[in-house]
Design a binder for these strands. Structure first.
Lengths: 259, 259
DNA sequence: CGGTATCTGTGTATGCCATAAACCGATTAT
DNA sequence: ATAATCGGTTTATGGCATACACAGATACCG
């Protein structure tokens, strides 16, 4: 159960939206939660999420550890704020007119955000709020992408959820495999696994593993050509998205037919 | 970067598969990683993931904290093992013949596993391995469900991934909303949000929020009838799954047509 | 069959980290 | 001007993961 204010909203939500009353008396404030979150994000970007400690954030700002607690109720709240701030979708996007294209572009924006700050996935789930500013912004943009679809709003929200969840999970998978695939799939580990993942025990999966699919391990191929943003799973990503789009088109046909 | 053995496989993987050499000399072992993981899971089930400390696990087994480190390299590894053990799919499932039904049943099994041990979602992502025993088991079963589909193996793996990711994310969403929806959506918070989520700034989303959709908040309705397993988002869950299935059917048609 | 290398469980110790509590000086409302 | 409030610091605490070194148990080797 997350910390909540009298309104029932999690404190992180009210803070992020600037709905917190600003004190009148007392000295001028030397910090702001924006600056704190920005500093924390920079640390996470450079040194990983584990390096984000209250102390590190505070000293990187030239303040004491405890000073942060005047702006943020605790580390949980800081993490929530970081997460939302990191997943900002660019302002002023112009989406293609065709909803299929628009949806793909939107998904790409979400995906880019994750790729820019992969440590977000290191934040425990179950603490995420749909009501944070950038979530709301992203949702609005997603609905904009689907504007011309002949579905009611509730259903569009469902689509947005499915897609964003899909994108999130795909990035998560990419990162797990980046950790694991490159090393483990080096034949050696796979052979070892072959001892336990036998065709008798796993009739359907064993052949696939043996064939070397799974894990998106291409046959070496031409690596190195602008490899920066090559996550190796682009094909799988596109495939899943195609699947969703196809399902959506079918749904549209069904709806249109029943009119 | 996760701890790896000489094989390149994460240590958690080799431990989970029992691929670790058993020592010959020395006293008889009083513990096993299975018992440790089981104890840890019990604590997590009863008191939440936060209560799972090395100390708590050890004393619940009647041993010292440090004794655990003879079986598990650290807490990270323990969490990985817990995650995999918690997400076990029942043995001896018989899947329906129709692949649509089978896929739904399979997705339901995965979903049930999460519902049984929701704390799994509290484990930071990016640490999860696809090579753990129960992941493999689940993947095998998933492929079995799709056995009759006229798609190649690689594509089926893609489908499995999409579906399991979808299920995972849906459960995550459910839990987030259970934390937040029940409390926050009590009109009061929503009104407050209305001040910032204005139709001018969020033309597409604001109406939806105002209408009370989003967050799966039904108009009160008849709650209490066997509410145990009522997560409120079943409709959304089914919807997304339908979408995927529909997409898949389309894909099958495409493939068949190009034959 | 005795010696030795090896392993297990334990006790002790360390260092990091989040956070609580009390304090001083600055600022503003009255 | 005075009092109520607030910001930032200092100091202190408790929890937690884990490194290290030890004492007894066990199995291999000659």
């Amino acid at each position: 159960m997350a910390e909540t204010t009298e309104t029932g909203l999690p404190r992180a939500v009210t803070v992020a939206w600037g709905m917190q009353e600003v004190p009148q008396r007392g000295p001028n404030r030397g910090l702001s939660h924006e600056r704190i979150v920005a500093a924390a994000i920079e640390i996470a970007d450079n040194e990983g999420l584990a390096a984000v400690t209250m102390q590190a954030v505070a000293t990187s700002l030239g303040f004491t550890t405890m000073s942060l607690y005047r702006y943020v109720s605790g580390k949980d709240e800081l993490l929530r704020l970081m997460q939302d701030a990191a997943l900002a979708v660019p302002e002023q996007v112009t989406l293609p007119g065709d909803w299929r294209e628009a949806l793909r572009v939107w998904a790409g924006l979400v995906r880019d955000a994750f790729h820019g700050h992969p440590w977000v996935l290191g934040i425990p789930r179950g603490q995420v709020s749909v009501l944070m500013p950038n979530s709301v912004r992203a949702a609005d943009l997603g609905l904009a992408a689907l504007h011309d679809l002949p579905l009611d709003d509730e259903e569009k929200v469902g689509v947005i959820l499915v897609v964003s969840q899909y994108v999130t999970s795909t990035v998560e998978l990419e990162l797990n495999l980046a950790d694991e695939g490159t090393v483990a799939v080096s034949r050696e580990g796979l052979d070892l696994l072959g001892g336990v993942v036998t065709p008798e025990r796993f009739p359907h999966l064993a052949p696939v593993l043996q064939a070397g699919h799974f894990l998106g391990s291409e046959p070496a191929g031409a690596a190195g050509e602008g490899a920066e943003t090559d996550y190796g799973l682009d094909a799988d990503y596109d495939y899943g998205l195609d699947l969703i789009v196809a399902g959506l088109e079918q749904r549209v046909r069904d709806v249109s037919a029943s009119d």
